[in-house]
């Protein structure tokens, strides 16, 4: 009798610690933030003392050109990064999908950039971009070319390059895994039919990899909206607002301008954006699974 009751309770006992921690430190803060975003909230006040202002924070932001600029920078940063990383990463996976001795060593070296702290990545690139002592300008000088003002005029591009350096390997590894799990029979058949290497890639490999590639791109896109430390160390959002992504603007609004309500409203805008992306990703995988199941059914009926 006691054991059966214990068994019925056991899922809750397994779930309880995680549920409690997530409720206290994720769900409750998110609700608190939504609550706070309707208030004129100063860091010295508790939320109860702050004045309720309705949608004012949201409306202010909606008309704020700086916020627009920041949103534009965020979107440009995220999309350019993901597109370039996808092209390079998938290209490299297609190129390196063969038996190479020492492939595992190669992969180890490729994942190194991802594992290092973003703060350190920013640090390394800040040194390399440095106008006088930096590696890039030294090399340019040595080649007799004019200096480039990396973190000044071309700040956004430089930041994007650093992100591409850090995250292309992620896409490379995932697409390589996808490539190596493709059905060998399809490739074999194509080869026997005399398809060239390009035709194999275009008509067989890429279409078959597509589901994994789309999920990878969406995951990477969601992550690209979280990037903060690299940019903070490289440019601190400058010059002007040229690299001030939303995450950075939130933290500045909260700590420098001391307007927690506005920062909370901005966080909510970012959250809604990411929510849409996540829903798109979940919806896509669900659709993919349903389609695969339907195909399998059709196949079984045929045979």
């Amino acid at each position: 009798m006691l054991t059966s009751r214990l068994n019925r309770l056991s899922p809750y006992m397994f779930m309880a610690p995680a549920a409690v921690i997530m409720a206290i430190a994720l769900i409750y803060p998110l609700g608190y933030m939504i609550w706070g975003s309707f208030r004129d909230w100063d860091p010295s006040q508790t939320i109860g003392e702050a004045e309720f202002v309705g949608l004012k924070n949201y409306i202010t932001l909606w008309g704020d050109p700086n916020f627009h600029e920041s949103l534009g920078v965020t979107l440009r940063f995220a999309f350019i990064c993901v597109i370039v990383e996808m092209i390079i990463g998938v290209g490299l996976a297609l190129l390196l999908d063969r038996d190479i001795r020492g492939m595992s060593l190669l992969r180890t070296m490729f994942i190194l950039p991802m594992m290092i702290a973003p703060v350190v990545v920013g640090l390394m690139w800040r040194y390399m971009y440095h106008p006088t002592v930096g590696t890039f300008n030294r090399t340019l000088e040595w080649l007799g070319l004019p200096d480039v003002d990396w973190l000044g005029q071309h700040a956004l591009m430089s930041v994007i390059i650093a992100d591409i350096w850090q995250w292309t390997p992620f896409i490379f590894i995932l697409s390589l895994a996808a490539l190596q799990s493709l059905p060998r029979s399809a490739l074999e058949a194509a080869r026997i039919d005399g398809a060239t290497a390009w035709q194999q890639i275009l008509y067989i490999k890429l279409p078959l990899m597509m589901p994994v590639l789309i999920v990878t791109a969406l995951l990477r896109l969601i992550d690209a909206f979280k990037v903060l430390e690299v940019i903070l160390v490289l440019t601190e959002g400058g010059p002007g607002l040229s690299t001030e992504i939303l995450a950075l603007r939130i933290s500045r609004t909260a700590t420098e301008f001391r307007e927690l309500g506005v920062a909370a409203a901005m966080s909510n805008y970012l959250l809604i954006l990411l929510m849409l992306l996540t829903v798109a990703m979940i919806g896509f995988t669900k659709w993919q699974e349903a389609r695969a199941a339907k195909l399998r059914m059709a196949n079984e009926e045929d045979s």
Partner: peptide
């Protein structure tokens, strides 16, 4: 629970900054 877990996976640290700062201090 499983849907919530999936959704909160994408919450960026920057979004948690304001509420966590307020809650942890007050």
């Amino acid at each position: 629970v499983s849907a919530t877990t999936l959704m909160v996976r994408m919450v960026p640290p920057a979004v948690l900054l304001v509420p966590v700062f307020g809650l942890w201090n007050n």
